[in-house]
């Protein structure tokens, strides 16, 4: 085979290879779009444990029954699929709450109750342990797809950082 033929062969393979790379890249882009449209699933127990470990909480938190979540936040069972609530002993305002709302309207209702909870706690701690009100002022309420996450802690920056990492891990 002459030099010209080798050159033609090389160019042909090079073009085919380039085409293959371009086509596969497009394919990956389409897959990425399919992942985003899929519903987000959060391992609530794992996330609550991670938050508890990494937030440097000042109070001992313990998980309570879902019935207690519904009572404390004054929500009806129909509005949520699942909830995890970690409450303090009463020594501090620290709290972690993760809820999977049943639908869009429920999520709005629960968010409203979370905000009401924060205000009620501020009123409660104002005459009891006033230094805890600052934590409540910086309380985090975050929405991730169908989930609502409430965090009250002394280090809200760390709380947001942990949540960002959790969101990244979902993608």
């Amino acid at each position: 085979m002459g030099r010209k033929n080798y050159l033609r062969l090389f160019l042909t393979f090079g073009l085919l290879l380039g085409l293959a790379v371009v086509v596969s890249a497009c394919g990956e882009g389409q897959d990425r779009e399919r992942d985003v449209s899929a519903p987000v699933v959060i391992d609530m127990a794992a996330l609550s444990s991670q938050l508890q470990k990494e937030l440097g909480l000042e109070a001992e938190l313990a998980p309570v029954e879902e019935e207690v979540f519904a009572y404390v936040y004054d929500v009806v069972p129909e509005d949520y699929e699942e909830a995890v609530l970690l409450l303090s002993t009463g020594a501090a305002a620290d709290e972690i709450c993760i809820v999977q709302a049943a639908d869009g309207d429920s999520k709005k209702a629960i968010k409203k109750q979370m905000e009401a909870r924060i205000e009620a706690q501020k009123e409660s701690f104002a005459s009891y342990l006033p230094e805890e009100v600052a934590k409540l002022d910086e309380a985090i309420i975050r929405e991730i797809d169908a989930y609502l996450i409430l965090i009250v802690c002394a280090n809200p920056e760390q709380g947001n950082a942990v949540l960002e990492q959790a969101i990244e891990n979902l993608n």
Binding site: V64, E65, E67, V68, S124, S127, Y128
Partner: peptide, 15 residues
């Protein structure tokens, strides 16, 4: 709260 007594009369109030 820790005993899940949401149906009892709850008059436990801070301070």
């Amino acid at each position: 709260l820790y005993n899940g007594l949401t149906r009892a009369g709850n008059y436990g109030v801070k301070a």
